[in-house]
Structure formats: C-alpha cells, structure tokens
Write a protein that binds this DNA or RNA. Sequence first.
DNA 1: GGCTATACGTAGTCACACGACATGTAGCAG
DNA 2: CTGCTACATGTCGTGTGACTACGTATAGCC
Lengths: 107, 107
Amino acid sequence: MKADVLRGHLDALLLAVLDGRKLHGYAIIEALQLRTDGVLDLPTGTVYPALRRLERAGFLASEWDVVSGRKRRTYRLTRAGQRELAAERAGWREFTTVIGGVLGERP
Amino acid sequence: MKADVLRGHLDALLLAVLDGRKLHGYAIIEALQLRTDGVLDLPTGTVYPALRRLERAGFLASEWDVVSGRKRRTYRLTRAGQRELAAERAGWREFTTVIGGVLGERP
DNA sequence: GGCTATACGTAGTCACACGACATGTAGCAG
DNA sequence: CTGCTACATGTCGTGTGACTACGTATAGCC
C-alpha cells in the first residue's frame, strides 16, 4: 500500500480494533495484520506514539499488566473514545462517498 | 471534512477529474466542488503545485489558452496519466476495502 | 550462549497539503 | 473613473503526522 495514504485514518483504525475488547500495543498490530490479511503491517514507531496521543486525548485508557513475566500496557476505549469512534466511522463514510464519487464517475 | 485526510489521494482526484476532458486549474477546483456538492473546496495553494508536480511526473500535459483576454493553462491526461489513473483507482479500491474492513466489522 | 519472538518506547526525518500572500484582467455598480 | 467582485495563476513557509532507525529488555528454545 502506498506510503502515508492512511494519514488521518490511523486513529479510526486503532479505535476500531479496540472496539469491544482490550488489547496491548503489540497485539493491536497483530490484530490489524490478521483482519487485513497482512496488508496492514504498521510499524511500532507508528502505533505506540499514536496510542499515547489517543490516551492523552481521552479516547483511550491504559493499565499495566504483567503476563508471564512480560509487562504490557493494555488499552481500552473510554466513553469519549466510543463517541470518537462513531464520529470516525461517520467521517469515513463521508470521505469514501466523496472521493469515490469523483473517482467512480466518468464525465 | 477533517484536515488532510486526502493526503495521498489528491493525485487520484486530479487525474480523475481530467479523465476525458481538458480543464484549467480554476475549472478543476470548480468541477470538484460541483461533483462533491461543495464538500471538496481545494485551495489554489494545493491544486496548482500538485498540477505542476503531475506534469513533471509526465502524467499531465499543459498548454496556454487565451480566452476573452484571460490566459489560462489547460491540462490534459497523457497516456502515462491514463495508466496512472487506472493504478490510482485500483489503489483506492484496495485502500477502502482494507480500511473499511477494519472499521466495519465488530470483533 | 546465541537466536528469535515478544514487548515498549523515542528521536529525527521528510513528504505534502495548506494558509497566506502576491499579481493581474474583466466587468459591473455607483 | 473608482471601487469591488469574480476569474485566474502562481510561490513560499509552515505544520502535521506517519515512518525509519534506533535503544531497551524478557521468555523460551536450541
């Protein structure tokens, strides 16, 4: 996939993958790979800063787990995050409608 | 529409709006407004540099017209531009499938 | 002891859309 | 004949944000 086409859509992806479940950063990357048949392979340098940003914004909450000696920071959606996800989904629909409309039609 | 979500999709829009017709910069902006019911209102500082970039890349060709005393630079797709447009359309389909798949499903 | 997978994180870079600005003509209202 | 608006093209600087390349550390296997 072309570089930085998902500029502006990363937040939506992260919120969506956390919808209804708690995951830590590494698992989020794996979950996105699974859901997209390996097409989306986000680097840690993309995901971790984004998660912290979303937490600062109040859309995510995190807590430390220690599982089999490994510490991992588990994220979950806050209520504001749920609302934000709904807004992101709506924004995505509008975005695809608009761009798809231009790309699909012939003059 | 949220800021710079169309990062990486601008080229596709410009090529698509020029598919099958010749237009000058200002008319391109108006055509995109029309097609999107005013949602897409690209500033000149976005469109003009992009057109020149696409021309440098060989996807567009331009020539000067003078219509009722006004000079305007008219752009048209080259053959390479046609191929690039097809590739952009394919890329768009993949992109929407991947992102839409993540956003649409529930775990 | 070395290797791989798991796991988190930071710092710097770079592409690119955008805002602000500069320039000039046509045509109309007053 | 003076503003003002619409038309039309362009440049420059800025900011954002995903990415590359690092650095760190543990578990488990060979």
